[in-house]
Computed example of a mutant assay.
Amino acid sequence: MFSQHTLFSRFGIVIQSISLFLVFATANATVPLYPEWQHKIGFSHVGISVIFIAYHIGVIFALLTFRKATQPQTIKKLLLVGLGSAMLAAIGFASANIIEWLVISRMFVGIASGIFASLGVAQILRIGNYLNVSYTPLLVTVATVLGFGVGPLYSGITADLSTHHLLIIFGLFFGAMLICSLLIVTASSDGVAASSATQPPAPVNLAKALMVTGMFAGPFALSGLFLSLGPSMISRLMDNDSRALAGTIPFLLFGFGVCVQFVLKKLSYRRMVIYSQLLSYAGAIVIIAAESLHSLVLMMLSALLIGSGQSLSQLAGLTMIKLWRPLGTLEKSSGFLFFGGYAVAACSIMMLGEVSAHFGLMSATIVFLLICLSIMTIAFARFIQDTARNSACSL
């Protein structure tokens, strides 16, 4: 029944986008469960940071290892490897009783995320280019951002309502990814090679790749704060360990970001960049205020601001990647974009855990924000400079 379908079609775009969503939803469904695991297994904020870093190690490994794949059959097999890794992680999360098991599971789902962030995203953008589907950058961004938001909300609500929540949460993801795997296995990859032939490699421009990645990496790392230490921060601010509440904050962050994307989707990528950077700056300032005043309202406001900034920066980044392919191909360019985001997030979150253990969470948060904002500022300044130069040349 499925053999009539091909990955090189609108069906292929849809099934690969759903797979992309499921992988990121599985990866982030763990967010509201950290306080529970922390209490049951027994580990500190540094332990949470280690678990978070393990995910980024898996992502970076996959981005560096698989981003050069170009043959349709190879990409198809690697997408199946990604889904398989995510399914193994789901089994691990459902049965974890030691921190090492959580670390290994996070690394597996990180590998899955890295494969889909590079090959999956590039495949969707390429097919969209060839079929003249203009909305693929928006579709890819919505799929990933919704995964970041829906995963924690679903797991948090389920955890508060059911005593067997781990089996229910990760069993559903396992089943859905298994269905996607079967659809991809039985679909033909005919025609994908044709799109590569019509799009020869673009000239390599490393400076442009670094600029685009820097403007995305800062907001991406800021959103990582809510996915790593967010639940613990909320629990402390409210003296409430509700897992549904812990899952609501990431959902607000990324769900609001999706809404902003749809409202502003017709903006030029230049305006998207400007708005994304300003929203991220504002969100960082509000985080400091929320920590200083122990205000949940301000914490939620910062989540909305940073979620909007992150979502717009990702949409703008993917739009520029699709237009310029600054590293020659879509695989290398999109892989580098997400590599930069995950690398900055991993290093800054690891630093956050270490500094907070010695100097407290407030001091660590300030240093973390300074790192993220510095990277954003350098890249954004280069973007403004390039935009001004291009405007002057066109006069």
Rank of each mutant, 00 (worst) to 15 (best):
V355E: 13
V59H: 09
S155M: 07
V81Y: 13
T163M: 11
L318D: 04
G283Q: 09
F170D: 09
A364K: 10
Y55I: 00
I99V: 13
I306V: 10
G114E: 10
R126G: 03
G120V: 02
A207G: 14
A207V: 03
T74C: 02
L83M: 13
L301M: 10
P200Q: 13
P72D: 08
M211H: 06
L267A: 08
M87L: 13
A290Q: 07
L166P: 00
L337N: 08
S181D: 11
L146Q: 04
S118C: 06
A303N: 03
F116N: 08
R325D: 00
K332Q: 14
I169V: 15
S268P: 03
H39M: 03
N390G: 00
E291I: 02
A221G: 13
T70E: 15
S85G: 11
N205Q: 14
G317H: 01
I179F: 09
H358Q: 15
L370A: 15
G360F: 11
V23P: 06
G42E: 12
L227G: 09
F108K: 04
S188T: 06
V31K: 06
S228Y: 05
L361T: 14
S374I: 02
I75M: 12
W324Q: 11
S235T: 06
K68G: 03
I111M: 12
L225C: 07
S134Q: 14
I41M: 09
V142T: 13
Y55F: 11
A221Q: 14
F21K: 08
S19P: 11
